[in-house]
Design a binder for these strands. Sequence first.
DNA 1: AGCTCTTCCTGAAAGC
DNA 2: TGCTTTCAGGAAGAGC
Length: 278
Amino acid sequence: MPELPEAEVAARQLRARLVGAQVADIRLGRADIVREGIRSLDWYAGSAVHTIDRRGKSVVFTFVKHGEPRHLVAELGMTGLLLLPSAQVRFPQHTHAVLSFTDPSCPPVRYWNPRRFGRLSLLDADGLRRYVDRRFGCEPLAVTKEQFAALLRCRRRLKPLLMHQQTIAGIGNIYANEILFRARLHPNIVANRLGIGAVSRLHTVMQSVLREAIDCGGSSVKDYFAPNGSEGSYKDRHLVYGKAGQPCPNRCGAVIRRLQSERSSFFCPRCQTRRRQA
DNA sequence: AGCTCTTCCTGAAAGC
DNA sequence: TGCTTTCAGGAAGAGC
Protein backbone atom coordinates (compact mmCIF):
# COMPACT_ATOMS: atom_id res chain seq x y z
CA MET A 1 0.00 0.00 0.00
CA PRO A 2 2.08 2.87 -1.24
CA GLU A 3 1.85 5.92 0.96
CA LEU A 4 4.02 9.05 0.92
CA PRO A 5 7.40 7.36 1.55
CA GLU A 6 6.84 4.67 -1.08
CA ALA A 7 5.65 7.22 -3.65
CA GLU A 8 8.65 9.42 -2.85
CA VAL A 9 11.10 6.54 -3.32
CA ALA A 10 9.40 5.64 -6.61
CA ALA A 11 9.56 9.24 -7.87
CA ARG A 12 13.25 9.52 -6.97
CA GLN A 13 14.23 6.31 -8.72
CA LEU A 14 12.28 7.18 -11.86
CA ARG A 15 13.63 10.73 -11.89
CA ALA A 16 17.21 9.48 -11.74
CA ARG A 17 16.67 7.32 -14.82
CA LEU A 18 14.22 9.20 -16.99
CA VAL A 19 14.44 12.99 -16.79
CA GLY A 20 15.24 14.32 -20.26
CA ALA A 21 14.14 11.17 -22.07
CA GLN A 22 11.93 11.46 -25.14
CA VAL A 23 8.64 9.59 -25.00
CA ALA A 24 7.93 7.04 -27.73
CA ASP A 25 4.38 6.43 -26.56
CA ILE A 26 2.02 5.58 -23.74
CA ARG A 27 0.17 2.32 -24.28
CA LEU A 28 -2.79 1.23 -22.23
CA GLY A 29 -3.64 -2.30 -21.24
CA ARG A 30 -7.12 -1.14 -20.38
CA ALA A 31 -8.65 2.22 -21.16
CA ASP A 32 -10.68 2.53 -17.97
CA ILE A 33 -7.49 2.91 -15.94
CA VAL A 34 -7.43 6.54 -17.14
CA ARG A 35 -9.64 8.68 -14.95
CA GLU A 36 -9.32 11.87 -16.94
CA GLY A 37 -7.86 13.05 -20.25
CA ILE A 38 -7.72 9.85 -22.29
CA ARG A 39 -8.35 11.78 -25.50
CA SER A 40 -4.98 13.49 -25.10
CA LEU A 41 -3.04 10.22 -25.07
CA ASP A 42 -1.43 10.76 -28.49
CA TRP A 43 -0.03 14.13 -27.45
CA TYR A 44 2.59 12.50 -25.22
CA ALA A 45 4.48 10.81 -28.07
CA GLY A 46 7.49 12.96 -28.88
CA SER A 47 7.38 14.94 -25.63
CA ALA A 48 10.30 14.97 -23.21
CA VAL A 49 10.26 14.08 -19.52
CA HIS A 50 10.75 17.38 -17.72
CA THR A 51 10.26 16.41 -14.06
CA ILE A 52 9.05 13.50 -11.96
CA ASP A 53 7.74 14.51 -8.55
CA ARG A 54 5.57 13.26 -5.77
CA ARG A 55 2.41 14.90 -4.45
CA GLY A 56 0.69 13.16 -1.55
CA LYS A 57 0.72 9.47 -2.46
CA SER A 58 0.80 10.14 -6.21
CA VAL A 59 3.66 10.36 -8.68
CA VAL A 60 3.41 13.31 -11.06
CA PHE A 61 5.24 13.21 -14.40
CA THR A 62 5.61 16.47 -16.30
CA PHE A 63 6.33 16.35 -20.02
CA VAL A 64 7.13 19.19 -22.39
CA LYS A 65 6.48 19.40 -26.11
CA HIS A 66 6.74 22.58 -28.25
CA GLY A 67 7.14 24.55 -25.02
CA GLU A 68 3.86 23.27 -23.58
CA PRO A 69 3.78 21.22 -20.37
CA ARG A 70 1.43 18.32 -19.77
CA HIS A 71 1.22 15.84 -16.95
CA LEU A 72 0.62 12.24 -16.07
CA VAL A 73 -0.56 11.69 -12.51
CA ALA A 74 -0.21 8.12 -11.29
CA GLU A 75 -2.39 7.48 -8.30
CA LEU A 76 -1.12 4.25 -6.79
CA GLY A 77 -4.14 3.34 -4.68
CA MET A 78 -3.34 0.43 -2.49
CA THR A 79 -1.73 -2.03 -4.91
CA GLY A 80 -0.32 0.27 -7.59
CA LEU A 81 3.34 0.15 -8.56
CA LEU A 82 5.48 1.95 -11.12
CA LEU A 83 8.08 -0.50 -12.34
CA LEU A 84 11.25 -0.52 -14.38
CA PRO A 85 12.14 -3.69 -16.32
CA SER A 86 14.35 -4.99 -13.51
CA ALA A 87 11.27 -5.44 -11.30
CA GLN A 88 9.24 -8.59 -11.84
CA VAL A 89 5.66 -9.13 -10.70
CA ARG A 90 3.67 -12.28 -10.12
CA PHE A 91 0.58 -11.21 -12.06
CA PRO A 92 1.84 -9.42 -15.17
CA GLN A 93 -1.69 -9.30 -16.60
CA HIS A 94 -2.37 -6.40 -14.24
CA THR A 95 -0.04 -4.09 -16.15
CA HIS A 96 -2.43 -1.37 -17.28
CA ALA A 97 -0.10 1.14 -18.92
CA VAL A 98 3.43 1.25 -20.35
CA LEU A 99 5.36 4.46 -20.89
CA SER A 100 8.21 3.89 -23.33
CA PHE A 101 11.02 6.04 -24.65
CA THR A 102 12.79 6.49 -27.96
CA ASP A 103 16.27 6.10 -26.48
CA PRO A 104 16.94 2.37 -26.04
CA SER A 105 18.98 3.11 -22.92
CA CYS A 106 15.87 4.56 -21.22
CA PRO A 107 13.86 1.70 -19.76
CA PRO A 108 10.06 1.62 -20.13
CA VAL A 109 7.91 2.20 -17.04
CA ARG A 110 4.97 -0.08 -16.31
CA TYR A 111 1.97 0.90 -14.23
CA TRP A 112 0.87 -2.28 -12.49
CA ASN A 113 -2.19 -2.32 -10.26
CA PRO A 114 -4.14 -5.52 -9.61
CA ARG A 115 -6.94 -4.05 -7.52
CA ARG A 116 -7.19 -0.86 -9.52
CA PHE A 117 -7.84 1.40 -6.57
CA GLY A 118 -6.01 4.25 -8.20
CA ARG A 119 -6.04 5.61 -11.71
CA LEU A 120 -3.98 7.58 -14.16
CA SER A 121 -4.89 11.10 -15.19
CA LEU A 122 -3.59 12.91 -18.28
CA LEU A 123 -3.77 16.63 -17.60
CA ASP A 124 -2.73 19.97 -19.02
CA ALA A 125 -1.43 22.72 -16.73
CA ASP A 126 -4.91 23.92 -15.78
CA GLY A 127 -6.11 20.39 -15.27
CA LEU A 128 -3.24 19.63 -12.92
CA ARG A 129 -3.95 22.77 -10.92
CA ARG A 130 -7.59 21.80 -10.53
CA TYR A 131 -6.66 18.22 -9.72
CA VAL A 132 -4.21 19.28 -7.00
CA ASP A 133 -6.56 21.88 -5.53
CA ARG A 134 -9.40 19.43 -5.33
CA ARG A 135 -7.52 16.45 -3.96
CA PHE A 136 -4.41 17.41 -2.04
CA GLY A 137 -3.99 19.25 1.24
CA CYS A 138 -0.65 20.34 2.61
CA GLU A 139 2.51 18.28 2.35
CA PRO A 140 3.36 16.72 5.72
CA LEU A 141 7.10 17.23 5.20
CA ALA A 142 6.66 20.89 4.27
CA VAL A 143 3.94 22.04 6.64
CA THR A 144 5.15 24.26 9.48
CA LYS A 145 4.24 23.64 13.09
CA GLU A 146 1.96 26.70 13.06
CA GLN A 147 0.15 25.59 9.91
CA PHE A 148 -0.20 22.10 11.34
CA ALA A 149 -1.63 23.45 14.58
CA ALA A 150 -4.22 25.40 12.59
CA LEU A 151 -5.32 22.21 10.79
CA LEU A 152 -5.88 20.56 14.16
CA ARG A 153 -8.27 23.25 15.39
CA CYS A 154 -11.33 21.20 14.55
CA ARG A 155 -13.50 18.53 16.12
CA ARG A 156 -12.36 15.67 13.98
CA ARG A 157 -10.74 12.55 15.36
CA LEU A 158 -7.00 12.40 15.01
CA LYS A 159 -6.41 9.33 12.88
CA PRO A 160 -9.05 10.01 10.21
CA LEU A 161 -7.77 13.60 10.13
CA LEU A 162 -4.16 12.51 9.52
CA MET A 163 -5.37 10.23 6.74
CA HIS A 164 -7.63 12.82 5.12
CA GLN A 165 -5.80 13.64 1.88
CA GLN A 166 -7.53 16.99 1.36
CA THR A 167 -6.18 18.12 4.74
CA ILE A 168 -2.74 16.47 4.81
CA ALA A 169 -1.68 14.59 1.70
CA GLY A 170 0.30 11.38 1.86
CA ILE A 171 -0.40 9.57 5.13
CA GLY A 172 -2.31 6.29 4.98
CA ASN A 173 -3.26 3.66 7.49
CA ILE A 174 0.20 2.21 8.17
CA TYR A 175 1.99 5.49 8.82
CA ALA A 176 -0.95 7.00 10.72
CA ASN A 177 -0.78 4.09 13.17
CA GLU A 178 2.99 4.30 13.52
CA ILE A 179 2.97 8.09 13.97
CA LEU A 180 0.24 8.06 16.62
CA PHE A 181 1.97 5.34 18.62
CA ARG A 182 5.26 7.23 18.65
CA ALA A 183 3.47 10.45 19.56
CA ARG A 184 1.64 8.54 22.33
CA LEU A 185 -1.75 9.75 21.13
CA HIS A 186 -4.91 7.71 20.90
CA PRO A 187 -6.25 7.40 17.31
CA ASN A 188 -9.68 8.68 18.32
CA ILE A 189 -8.74 11.77 20.29
CA VAL A 190 -10.56 14.82 18.99
CA ALA A 191 -7.97 17.07 17.38
CA ASN A 192 -8.82 20.30 19.19
CA ARG A 193 -8.36 18.61 22.56
CA LEU A 194 -4.61 18.43 22.02
CA GLY A 195 -2.54 20.97 23.91
CA ILE A 196 0.32 22.84 22.29
CA GLY A 197 2.86 20.30 23.54
CA ALA A 198 1.02 17.38 22.00
CA VAL A 199 0.54 19.22 18.70
CA SER A 200 4.24 20.00 18.58
CA ARG A 201 5.16 16.40 19.40
CA LEU A 202 2.82 15.07 16.74
CA HIS A 203 4.27 17.40 14.11
CA THR A 204 7.83 16.38 14.96
CA VAL A 205 7.01 12.68 15.02
CA MET A 206 5.05 12.83 11.77
CA GLN A 207 7.99 14.35 9.92
CA SER A 208 10.60 12.08 11.49
CA VAL A 209 8.63 8.89 10.78
CA LEU A 210 8.08 9.86 7.14
CA ARG A 211 11.72 10.92 6.63
CA GLU A 212 13.03 7.77 8.26
CA ALA A 213 10.71 5.64 6.12
CA ILE A 214 11.94 7.37 2.95
CA ASP A 215 15.54 6.74 4.03
CA CYS A 216 14.63 3.05 4.46
CA GLY A 217 13.15 2.88 0.97
CA GLY A 218 9.60 2.70 2.34
CA SER A 219 7.71 -0.18 3.90
CA SER A 220 7.20 -3.34 1.90
CA VAL A 221 3.96 -4.74 3.19
CA LYS A 222 2.40 -7.47 1.07
CA ASP A 223 3.66 -6.88 -2.45
CA TYR A 224 5.10 -3.40 -2.50
CA PHE A 225 8.46 -2.75 -4.04
CA ALA A 226 10.19 0.19 -5.63
CA PRO A 227 10.54 0.72 -9.42
CA ASN A 228 13.95 -0.99 -9.49
CA GLY A 229 12.56 -4.02 -7.64
CA SER A 230 14.06 -3.24 -4.24
CA GLU A 231 12.02 -3.68 -1.07
CA GLY A 232 11.69 -1.04 1.60
CA SER A 233 13.01 -1.95 5.03
CA TYR A 234 10.87 0.35 7.16
CA LYS A 235 8.46 -2.51 7.80
CA ASP A 236 11.14 -3.90 10.14
CA ARG A 237 10.70 -0.75 12.22
CA HIS A 238 6.93 -0.94 12.46
CA LEU A 239 6.01 -0.92 16.13
CA VAL A 240 2.24 -1.42 16.05
CA TYR A 241 0.94 -1.93 12.51
CA GLY A 242 -0.21 -5.54 12.13
CA LYS A 243 0.91 -6.38 15.69
CA ALA A 244 -2.39 -6.87 17.49
CA GLY A 245 -2.00 -9.22 20.45
CA GLN A 246 1.73 -8.60 20.83
CA PRO A 247 3.22 -6.85 23.86
CA CYS A 248 3.64 -3.07 23.61
CA PRO A 249 7.20 -2.29 22.41
CA ASN A 250 7.46 0.29 25.21
CA ARG A 251 7.32 -2.64 27.66
CA CYS A 252 4.47 -0.98 29.48
CA GLY A 253 2.86 -4.37 30.09
CA ALA A 254 -0.16 -3.79 27.86
CA VAL A 255 -0.93 -5.60 24.60
CA ILE A 256 -1.36 -3.93 21.22
CA ARG A 257 -5.03 -3.71 20.29
CA ARG A 258 -6.80 -3.44 17.02
CA LEU A 259 -9.96 -1.43 16.46
CA GLN A 260 -11.83 -2.72 13.47
CA SER A 261 -14.20 0.07 12.61
CA GLU A 262 -13.42 1.78 9.28
CA ARG A 263 -9.63 1.32 8.71
CA SER A 264 -8.10 -0.88 11.36
CA SER A 265 -6.29 1.05 14.04
CA PHE A 266 -3.43 -0.59 15.93
CA PHE A 267 -2.50 1.05 19.19
CA CYS A 268 -1.37 0.55 22.77
CA PRO A 269 -4.29 1.22 25.14
CA ARG A 270 -1.89 2.19 27.93
CA CYS A 271 0.69 4.35 26.15
CA GLN A 272 -1.67 6.16 23.78
CA THR A 273 -3.77 8.24 26.04
CA ARG A 274 -7.15 9.69 25.22
CA ARG A 275 -7.02 12.24 27.96
CA ARG A 276 -6.58 15.91 27.31
CA GLN A 277 -2.96 16.65 26.46
CA ALA A 278 -0.97 19.35 28.18
C1' DA B 1 -19.29 19.66 10.33
C1' DG B 2 -17.98 15.22 10.69
C1' DC B 3 -19.00 10.49 10.78
C1' DT B 4 -20.62 5.93 8.74
C1' DC B 5 -21.80 3.14 5.02
C1' DT B 6 -21.27 1.61 0.28
C1' DT B 7 -18.86 0.89 -3.96
C1' DC B 8 -14.94 -0.22 -6.56
C1' DC B 9 -11.40 -4.86 -7.19
C1' DT B 10 -8.67 -9.16 -6.69
C1' DG B 11 -5.49 -12.17 -4.12
C1' DA B 12 -4.79 -14.19 0.36
C1' DA B 13 -6.48 -16.33 4.15
C1' DA B 14 -9.92 -18.25 6.86
C1' DG B 15 -13.93 -21.25 7.16
C1' DC B 16 -16.41 -25.35 6.12
C1' DT C 1 -8.32 -31.70 -0.04
C1' DG C 2 -10.95 -28.26 -2.35
C1' DC C 3 -14.44 -25.16 -2.65
C1' DT C 4 -16.73 -20.87 -0.75
C1' DT C 5 -16.66 -16.82 1.95
C1' DT C 6 -14.53 -13.00 4.01
C1' DC C 7 -11.37 -9.45 4.30
C1' DA C 8 -8.10 -5.90 3.33
C1' DG C 9 -7.41 -1.26 1.77
C1' DG C 10 -7.71 4.31 -0.50
C1' DA C 11 -10.90 7.43 -2.17
C1' DA C 12 -15.36 9.26 -3.47
C1' DG C 13 -20.04 9.98 -2.82
C1' DA C 14 -24.56 9.40 -0.41
C1' DG C 15 -26.97 9.91 3.60
C1' DC C 16 -27.36 10.92 8.51
